[in-house]
């Protein structure tokens, strides 16, 4: 009787779990439906008709392209900065035992653990105090700060698997520190870094709260969307952009998942 209970899933649990997953996914599916609606004045359901014409309209909108371009550039540079800083931090924390490593972990996680609005307003008032004008780089500064943690989390998990004796074995066989990094450490943490980088890119690409404080008059794609949400002017274009954003962020997440699934899991806490 006991083993029965172990192997058979209770029906109520199955239903609750299924409903929960549906709750998570149905709203996203709705976005896809609305991208094809013919209605352009309201959010009417069901859509009175379906059309592809909004894709063409969106394609020809320079402001969308501009915002997309800025987002991609910000995300790329932030990812590179986060990769360097996150990897260094992870290497230091996992390869050596030193006083204060808990503090370092906390420091890396803090920009994510504290509400984004605090990070945003802190940076903004610091820019004001230091009289730094808003620019591309002020956005990157904010984004890289909270992207470090995703790279760090992925790299720390993998560094733990590159046992200390592998590094010693490499040095024992004649490789100095740099050769060991190139021939042993990098090949072993490469996929974790790639995964971390993709998540960092997705995180930066989507960020809006900190960005509103550090962007000034510039519009990233999320800022563009936020304006459309507060004052809807171009509902059909917003629908199409929303759908594309969902698709675009799914790709790096899936890629990161496949890169890290045999072994450590991608860390979900970094957002």
């Amino acid at each position: 009787m006991r083993s029965d209970k172990q192997s058979r899933t209770p029906m109520g649990l199955k239903i609750a779990a299924g409903l929960g997953l549906a709750f998570l996914h149905l709203p996203l599916l709705l976005i896809f439906l609305y991208a094809f609606t013919t209605e352009d004045k309201s959010y009417q359901f069901p859509p009175p008709g379906l059309t592809l014409k909004w894709f063409a309209v969106t394609w020809n909108r320079p402001d969308v392209w501009e915002a997309l371009g800025l987002s991609v550039r910000v995300a790329s540079i932030s990812t590179v900065v986060a990769l360097v800083l996150g990897t260094l931090c992870a290497a230091a924390v996992s390869q050596t035992r030193f006083f204060g490593r808990e503090t370092i972990s906390l420091l890396v996680i803090l920009p994510i653990a504290l509400p984004g609005i605090i990070t945003g307003i802190s940076l903004r008032s610091a820019f004001n105090l230091a009289e730094i004008p808003f620019s591309f780089w002020t956005i990157v500064l904010g984004h890289a700060t909270f992207c470090v943690v995703v790279v760090y989390n992925n790299a720390v998990a993998r560094f733990r698997r590159v046992s200390g004796s592998l590094i010693e074995a490499s040095m024992d066989l004649g490789a100095d520190g740099f050769q060991t990094f190139r021939h042993v450490i990098l090949p072993n943490i490469g996929t974790a870094l790639l995964a971390g980088g993709m998540l960092a890119f997705a995180l930066s690409f989507d960020e809006v709260i900190v960005t509103t404080f550090t962007a000034g008059q510039q519009a990233t794609l999320p800022i563009w969307m936020l304006e459309e949400l507060v004052r809807p002017r171009q509902r059909p274009v917003t629908n199409v952009v929303a759908m594309v954003v969902v698709l675009v962020t799914f790709l790096p997440i899936l890629a990161a998942y496949y890169l890290t699934r045999d072994g450590d899991q991608i860390s979900g806490q970094g957002k």
Partner: peptide, 20 residues
């Protein structure tokens, strides 16, 4: 003298073979 300059080699307890 660092290990990589010693003409001495080690067989590790956990073998430490490079997995990649």
């Amino acid at each position: 003298v660092p290990p990589y300059r010693r003409n001495v080699n080690t067989v590790f307890q956990d073998y430490a073979l490079f997995p990649h």
